[in-house]
Design a protein around this nucleic acid. Sequence first.
DNA 1: AAAAAAT
Length: 419
Amino acid sequence: MTFDDFDFDEELLDGLHSMGFDQPTPIQAQAIPVILNNKDLIACAQTGTGKTAAYLLPVLNKIIDATPDNRHLNTLILAPTRELAIQIDQQIEGLGYFTGVSSIAIYGGGDGAAWSQQRKALAEGSEVIIATPGRLIALLQMGEINFGNLQHLILDEADRMLDMGFYDDIIRIISYLPNKRQTLLFSATMPPKIRTLANTILNKPEQISIAVAKPAEGILQLAYLVYDEQKIALLKNILKEGEYNSVIIFASTKENVKKLDEELRRNRLIAKAFHSDLDQKEREGILREFKNKALPILIGTDILSRGIDVEGISLVVNYNVPHDPEDYIHRIGRTARAETTGTAITFINDKDQRKFVAIERMIGKEIPKLSLPAALGAGPSYGQTGGGASTTEAKPQRKKKPFRPRGNKPGTPRSKSGN
DNA sequence: AAAAAAT
């Protein structure tokens, strides 16, 4: 199967070929006909599967097929992070280069210039808006956007948006949209909350599922059992081997990211931190440097874990085991994109062993544990879970405590139970 | 349990 089978317009095929697209990926092969057929869609698909183009291509094609007087604000795409919104916009610019479709990314955090730029683009009549929820709602309340003729609503990374508490915002945004529209929902996972959302905002959707929660074949996954005090030395050791030219290091908190950044700079490694405390301008500048290979090492929170597509990342380091097992797949998926290869190394301290076992269970295989370089001394041993029972042991029957009111008088607040 | 997102 090739893209020519979809009967796309020439201008779109030109953009497609100039972007190096050749064969449709499985999600594209399945989603494109459904979308061209004007059906609502729930698609279960990870990033890195070609999901963005799967909805952009048919939507762009429908826009250029519309009669000239119908070339109004046509499509709204919602995304969880600003960087993702920017990236989707860039992909429209690439794929739609020869189509003349106009788009604008709408998101917060910018200065006054960003505000006026967004308003100007809206006034001039962008056909596609890619937005994070907050700023979009602000503009809607100011009456700056008319969605009266909207044809398509697309929710990208819907599960992440719900994780971030955007349910009410999404419903609110939809209240500004026409009921007669095509809605497409993309999500890496399908928890009940997503089902509820889908039942509320989709109309007789078709469903496709591509996602097997499996990392790409080309990723070599490794791990170290390591105490917190040894992590910096281990990281320096890995980075100074020097065979990695483009590296993302994930840490679980902004504080950890900042500390790590200082530490690496002290060691004359060229690194920068990336997290939500930075100015939006800085965020965009740093990401650009990293994409251009002017910056070899990026240290970030999970703001970077989903969707961010940078070519040629050779190594991902999980300085902490991610809180959410899903994030592991997303994090390591930053490397080995588009059929290349890469390495993902996870640092597991004694407390994180349980979380890592959950990850191994999810991906259905055990990740090899490397021994620490001799200079670092011994790390924690496997099965050590920071005092708790080993996860590999059978769960002992939990004793049911008989309910006892502990002498509280009715109506008096209970003392904080220690749980 | 952490992060992100409007000002």
